[in-house]
């Protein structure tokens, strides 16, 4: 009852939100719908939202044409690899930036800030040559290396560390718990929400990396989902929409399922990413 009254009072609000939500969601339903159609059912003059008869064959065909399960495994390895090293590098750097005063601090901090702003695209060529020199082309590590340091993550975490009262540190030092132990036992647990937020953001953004993995990989045994999709798209020359959409649905599904299940965590994390304070 209460809800009904609420609806009446705010019907304008809900109307707007519903329409906008519908508009943003529609494209994804369209992927799903197209991916379940028969090839000849796609080209209809009026959009057919409910595919009938349903054709699951498309998904099987996609899996036969390209090893998407392998791409999925590779993606997971690459994304977690990046994150693992990132967590180490940003925690250490954020710690000194927030707790120490040392010569060159502003300069180094500036470097970290600048790194946030330099697009990866601007550094492809030299990075490619570097990896070639170390004979790392066409490996999963090649896809991770340029992302091991994160200016953004450092900045975010520094903000979180600064929120933690300095008195805590003094107490810890008196207890004989300085430096790394303090970092590990006091700061890291207290900054857990930020670490989780950064992790989720890192995972999402590297899950979606495209051009760099494309340039450094050659073979399906190391390629990731997005590259698999890109290759698949070109192979089909944009022509076979049922298969393309089935592949697209598969590539987007893992992240979206995660998102649906952990919506609250995801939303909190992205909200935290605004470095508010």
């Amino acid at each position: 009852m209460k809800f009904n009254r609420h609806l009446r009072n705010k019907s304008g609000l809900h109307l707007i939100l519903m329409v906008v939500s519908l508009i943003t969601v529609a494209p994804y339903f369209w992927i799903l719908s197209t991916s379940l159609k028969y090839r000849t059912e796609v080209f209809t003059p009026t959009p057919k939202w409910i595919p009938w008869p349903i054709n699951i064959q498309n998904y099987l065909e996609v899996f036969q044409m390209a090893p998407f399960h392998l791409y999925l495994i590779n993606t997971i390895i690459v994304v977690t690899g990046i994150l693992a090293v990132q967590l180490v590098t940003i925690t250490l750097a954020a710690y000194v930036f927030s707790r120490k005063n040392f010569w060159g601090k502003e300069f180094f901090f500036f470097l970290f800030l600048i790194q946030m702003m330099i697009p990866i695209h601007a550094t492809f060529l030299p990075n490619f040559l570097t990896l070639k020199r170390f004979d790392l082309l066409n490996t999963r590590v090649a896809m991770m290396l340029p992302f091991f340091a994160s200016g953004y993550g450092t900045f975010l975490l520094r903000q979180a560390f600064r929120q933690i009262p300095r008195a805590l540190e003094d107490a810890a030092v008196i207890d004989g718990c300085g430096g790394l132990r303090f970092l590990w036992h006091v700061l890291v647990p207290l900054a857990k929400p930020t670490l989780i937020a950064f992790s989720i953001i890192s995972i999402v953004s590297h899950w979606n990396d495209y051009l760099w993995p494309l340039i450094v990989t050659d073979t399906p045994d190391v390629r990731t989902l997005t590259i698999g999709l890109g290759m698949f798209v070109q192979q089909e020359s944009g022509a076979d929409w049922t298969l393309l959409m089935a592949a697209t649905a598969f590539v987007t599904a893992p992240m979206l399922i995660f998102f649906l299940v952990f919506q609250k965590k995801f939303v909190q994390s992205f909200m935290l990413s605004g470095m508010k304070g």
């Binding site: 180490v88 170390f134 004979d135 490996t139 999963r140 590590v141």
Partner: peptide
């Protein structure tokens, strides 16, 4: 001193990661 050791471990971890993948790639 302990700090230095810890930091060095981190390095070796990273360096190991790289070289392991390198030999893997060579293999």
């Amino acid at each position: 001193m302990r700090k230095v050791i810890l930091i060095l471990t981190v390095f070796f971890f990273i360096a190991g990661l790289i070289s392991a993948s390198e030999t893997w790639a060579q293999k």
